[in-house]
Simulated assay, not measured.
Amino acid sequence: MNSSSLPRFLFFSVLAGSTLLVPAQVQAQKKAAPTEQPSGLAGTEQADVLREWDKTIAKPVKQAQKTLPSVKKRYAAGLPAGQTLYLTTRLFDSNGQFEQVFVQVTSWQGNEVTGTLANHLELVQQYQPNQAITFPEQAVLDWTITTPDGREEGNFVGKFIDQLQQSSGQ
C-alpha cells in the first residue's frame, strides 16, 4: 500500500478512533475476534451511535457484501503479485466499546477469515497492530484490494466516507 491509497484508510480509521499501518508480520497466536455486539451494549449510548452509523453506511456495506463472494474466489485463486486484500470488520470488547478495523487477509477457509490487524486501536485495547485474529465471514463490512501503484478496488465504505467529507467541505 502506498501513500495514494492511505488517506481513505486513514480518514475511515480516524472516524473509528484508530490509525492504519501496514502489517509487518503475523504474530504466532491468532485470537478469535469478538465481532458481534455484547449483550451489555443494548440500550446504551454506544448502541445508539452504532445503530446510526450502520444506517449511514448501509448502502456501501450492502455493495461490498454483494461483491464479496467474487473477491473470495479471486483470493482463493491467488491475487497477482503485490496486491493485498484487506477486509473491514468490527471488534467489540466486554464493555461494549467497538472499533471498525482493517484486517490484512492471510487465510480464508470456508466461512472463517484469518488475518493481521492493520490498525492501532484506541478503544478496544486487548488487540495490538499486526496481531493475528480470526473472524466469521459474515462479520465483513467491506473489502479493499490494493495494488503496488496505489490503486484500490472495492473500499465501498471508504469511498462513501470520502463523498461525505467532500460534500461537507472538509
Rank of each mutant, 00 (worst) to 15 (best):
T144I: 13
I133C: 03
T44E: 08
V26A: 15
E52T: 15
T89W: 02
T134E: 11
Q163W: 09
F9Y: 10
K59I: 14
G96S: 08
A81D: 12
V26H: 03
F9N: 02
Q125F: 06
R90G: 05
A77W: 02
F135N: 04
L50F: 09
A139M: 07
A42Y: 11
G40V: 13
Q27P: 04
I57L: 12
L10R: 12
L117R: 02
G154E: 00
G169C: 07
R8P: 00
T146Y: 02
I145H: 00
W108M: 08
A118R: 03
F92S: 05
K31H: 15
G96W: 07
F135A: 04
L123W: 15
Q83C: 01
L91V: 15
D93F: 05
G96F: 05
Q163I: 11
K31E: 13
W143Y: 15
N130V: 01
Q165R: 15
S3Y: 09
L141M: 13
P7R: 08
G150D: 04
V22P: 00
S4A: 11
L79P: 03
Q27L: 13
I145F: 01
D149L: 07
Q25L: 12
V14H: 14
S70L: 12
A132G: 11
A139G: 06
Q27V: 07
H120I: 09
T19M: 13
A16L: 10
N130L: 02
T84F: 00
K59R: 14
P80S: 09
W108N: 05
G78T: 07
L15W: 07
K62N: 11
T106D: 10
L41A: 05
K72H: 14
A77R: 12
T114G: 05
P129G: 05
Q125C: 01
G150Y: 02
E112Q: 11
P129T: 06
P69G: 08
S39K: 14
A64P: 04
I161K: 02
L141Q: 14
